[in-house]
Design a protein around this nucleic acid. Sequence first.
RNA 1: GCGCCCGUAGCUCAACCGGAUAGAGCAUCCGCCUUCUAAGCGGACGGUUGCAGGUUCGAGUCCUGCCGGGCGCGCCA
Length: 594
Amino acid sequence: MSDLKGDLSEAVAAAFAAAGLPADLGRVTASDRPDLADFQCNGALPAAKRAGLNPRDVAAGVAGRLAGDARLTSVEVAGPGFINLKVSDAALAARAAEVAADPRAGAQGVSRPRRIIIDYGGPNVAKPMHVGHLRSSIIGESLKRIYRFRGDTVTGDAHFGDWGYQMGLLIGAVCDEDAAIAGLVETLNAGGDPDGALPAAFEQVSLADLDRLYPLAAAQGNQDTAYRDRARKLTADLQARRAGCYLLWRRFRAVTQVALQRDFHALGVDFDLWNGESDADALIEPMVADLAAKGLLEDDQGARIVRVARESDKKKLPPLLVVSSEGSAMYGTTDLATVLDRKQTLAPDHVIYCVDQRQADHFEVVFRAAYLAGYAVEGSLEHAGFGTMNGADGKPFKTREGGVLKLNDLIEMTRAKAAERLREAGLGAELDPAAFDDTAHKVAIAALKFADLQNFRGTSYVFDLDRFSSFEGKTGPYLLYQAVRVKSLLRKAAEAGDKAGAIAIGEPAERDLALTLDAFDQAVAEAYDKKAPNAVAEHAYRLAQAFSKFYAACPILAAPTPAAKASRLALATAALKQLELALGLLGIETPERM
RNA sequence: GCGCCCGUAGCUCAACCGGAUAGAGCAUCCGCCUUCUAAGCGGACGGUUGCAGGUUCGAGUCCUGCCGGGCGCGCCA
């Protein structure tokens, strides 16, 4: 089943071909001028250019061949050679009925499903998530759902940062602060069991400790060479699985995981794999040997590297640093090993890295090394970068106190506001406490996610607390509100025994709603192709808006005739289904009432 | 210094291979609840798309230069 736009494109393409013109120019799009037409085709302009003809004559020739199409009420040539199409109410009604009957609400799947991995470029161990982490999880989750919806087999991998220098820094910092721990680490390093039980002293280390110590240690490492060298050595010790470092690291990982799981769960973000950089560790040694065997590895300044620069590069890319002069695996090493690991375990057709745009160069280096080594097919690794979230001053977001706003605090803040708003609306008495909390949570998450996802992934944007916790206008709660109004309507209709029936289109608001329902497939396809969930967000908003206008203009339960009531109930039902599907693709859930 | 990205309404953001009159929300102002949830609907106001050239029948979109901002550039991740 294809949408009206697709059906009309076929008809217009056929008319182009019949007129001796390239059929691919017969592409139909939604009209830029809704006052003049429902759909348009601009293909006569380039066709005329190629053939050296007058574009209006070409357009008129094509229009003449479309005159008999029963779906069209008018075909007109306008401006320099646009072909304007108006579709009949009957054709719109038929399409709306298809959407109503389709579990996918009119959206098609891909013709050739692929195996996809989405790498969320996860947060680092030892650091609580702050608002900046919203983007990768929200965008990655939405992409995962969009790809899955279109028919691909998708694996989402958190890919935590848990295996680098920052771990060595933290081990050192914790030891400096607690002599007992320092002693234990030393003793265990000398000959303990890395897979043994955690010493009680290690259990005392909390996430708050790590959060407090990390920035201090990082700063110290930047200016103190001896401090840095010790951290590097501890990193190497950790990677060599010396028991003191390794067991302490396991504690770091555990306390971080608890907080991360809480935040991800609150956001409705779920990973199929909770892997981290450390999970690729076992592959590193054989991989290094393999790279050496393939002649890709060079010694340089005490480190071992793979050169990836090309003659054609505008900018000289640095090499991939595989083994540091300390013998440690680097960021790029684990990333490359992860590519290899995935090839062996999941054999993906395509991998999408949903990571901050600033890491574009890093990924280019890793991807090239992977292609050189034969760990991935050229072009199968893709960095879908996103922009940074800034404060009003254009710099990364900070609270008034100067610290970074923690994600959990943002969620709680927004949830409290949603609860207050729900109480004002009188739902405190109507819903039991559990349902009330659940609703407040859904409203808050919708507000946060939609505020982010309505922006194109690649743009950096200004984080504005008021906007993120706003419930009016182009916001998540507005979308939920429209869905909830339909649900309420359908409950009342069910009580009265009213049923949905054949769809008829008459009122302008009904036409607009039907046309908007038809545009869902295009929005999903665009989001898929461009890795841009904002296309779905935009469609969801337009649909909600079209429904709200329809709701205001066309009485449903009090429709003038039983047939009109049945038709409008069917339209409302279809709108709800598509809206909930679209919201689902954004990772937003709809409550029953609000 | 080299490279990448960005500059659109007072603010925050959109804009489908280059198409018609560049769209939303917020803010401001004016209307609409005795009828299905007013977290809503209707209307008004708001633009030389940073600047200057170029390509094109047609440029926010492509090319060149300039101005302004962000980011990256081998042992952090």
